[in-house]
Design a protein around this nucleic acid. Sequence first.
RNA 1: GGAGCAGUGGUGUAGAGGCCUAACAUGCCAGCCUGUCACGCUGGAGAUCGCGGGUUCGAAUCCCGUCUGCUCCGCCA
Length: 593
Amino acid sequence: MKRSHPCGELRKENTGSQVTLMGWVQRRRDHGGLIFVDLRDRSGLVQVVFSPEVGQEAFKKAESVRNEYVLAVTGDVKARPEGTINANLPTGEVEVYARQLLILNSAKTPPFYIEDDVDVDEMVRLKYRYLDLRRPEMQRNLIVRHKTAKAMRDFLDRNGFLEIETPMLINSTPEGARDFLVPSRVHPGEFFALPQSPQIYKQILMVSGMERYFQIVRCFRDEDLRADRQPEFTQLDIEMSFVEMDDILSLMEKMVSFIFKEALGKEIPASFRRIPYSEAMGRYGSDKPDLRFGLELTDVTDVVKDVEFKVFAAVAKGGGQIKGINAKGCAHFSRKEIDELTKLTAIYGAKGLAYIQMTPEGPKSPISKFFTEEQFAALLQTMQAETGDLLMFVADKPSVVAAALGNLRLELGRRLNLIDPEKLEFAWVVDFPLLEYDAEEKRYVAIHHPFTSPKDEDLPLLDSDPSKVRAKAYDLVLNGVELGGGSLRIYHRDIQEKMFSLLGFSQEEANQKFGYLLEAFEYGTPPHGGIAFGLDRMIMLMMGRDTIRDVIAFPKTQSASDLMVGAPNTVSPKQLKELHIKLDLPAKLAGKK
RNA sequence: GGAGCAGUGGUGUAGAGGCCUAACAUGCCAGCCUGUCACGCUGGAGAUCGCGGGUUCGAAUCCCGUCUGCUCCGCCA
């Protein structure tokens, strides 16, 4: 038997023709003298009718068929009789009368239904990932993932980009995330690292004159997982020579809108708004603001810096800030609800959440007694408070205020249903700071990475006030998720060396770790820059999922294990010996391995 | 490293000191059924309540520890 049609594509036009279908049994409805089987393949479902009058032998066999059996069915496509049309099914106007049935394989009863919206512990789904991936919604995710990758390749190919592979076994470098290490058998005691990104290779490719490079590439970072973070993930990595920031951003806007059109059939704006980092942090308390709703933060430091309330006054004098958020119409929030919100801000380090309830009887607040009438009036005015509003304030250093109120804003957005899930709000966040002082390590660290170029006009600040230097860096943000980021790169040896020294590398260290790059820069390096997109996150947003696990065929759990294959696992003493590796496990683990 | 939530027949849940010989739904098995599409009807099987310890006359239930999963903080250039 040879397959002739996909199940899900049969229509009225196919009536009268004989078809051979192959697929899985979605459901069997046995009426005794007549058996219906919904046959499913990647394309969808169609109803197959087994009747003794059409195929005696097929009917007999169909009695033994169960869910997820794999069948080959040959039969006739017929229009369904009056009154039996199923409008919920694309194939609902037809059915296939089976003449012949071949059971290609039987199947154990699966631990969960193969259908959309299953309510099953994710542990079970991950252990039986092959069954989970049979579910149509998971197949749709992977189909869109494929279409997206194809659209990327098509677009970039048409724009003169070359897809070039870079090594997976590279060297470990300082800075950035923790590396995954691979021991070298040939070099005892030495290790490869898996790439966190192909950053340096793609810059070297620019030195090589490739001019336009891209790669859809796996990246590895040995850090803790989140709903949108896996230890291995896929980037669309891009680098271009002889361009300015605008060239990159506008080409990427075209690419992203092409992708959404090709993979999803969705039209999105031809260009995205640009928000300076400082504005994003100020208005939304985040460098990846969700712009689908308002509820912006208001700085009230100046308004409250002289009040009796010690918390506000002390923070204001100590260089911190006090900011507020006006939750319109939330004055009625109960003590319990406000407590919950206070707890939420505490997660981000806020020591308290001051609030004012604008009740019809007037403002009610535990902190009003510390204000003069004028001060209080000024605060209400700055917050544009009206009857019915709930004002909430956090006082702390700017990073804590931003994190606490930024996340409070998101929570309020959800609670108050301010977020339209259909909306796609893209934005470029630009003018990131180049460096950030790390109090723990007592040195500056690169916010983007050490190869990011400072803005030309800020170059003098590198010596006087490095934390004020802005970078030629940009992130693409969609609905509060960082979709990608990039920068123009340093391409002069002296500036790169200065950067390394600001990051606390000695000349020897810089030469030892990045000497090849510094040397390459001396052989005619073109100005260049690029960007990398998180493919998993992009698909997640396209498909409206809450986790990238749903758009990765074989993802890992929060503790970085693969429940299907049981990775990671122990290896034999022989393997370790070959690599000259001895284990030194903590006592509580030693016995178990 | 830390916080929170969860773990009970295959799956999803209920049970919160004795009423539990663990309930419900669904799935599974058997029988009946020629127009169903979450088919229907009848009957049946299926759980040492994640694991270990403790409290108690008595623990799915309380306490301690531990494991696993999820969400988050830290971490993620």
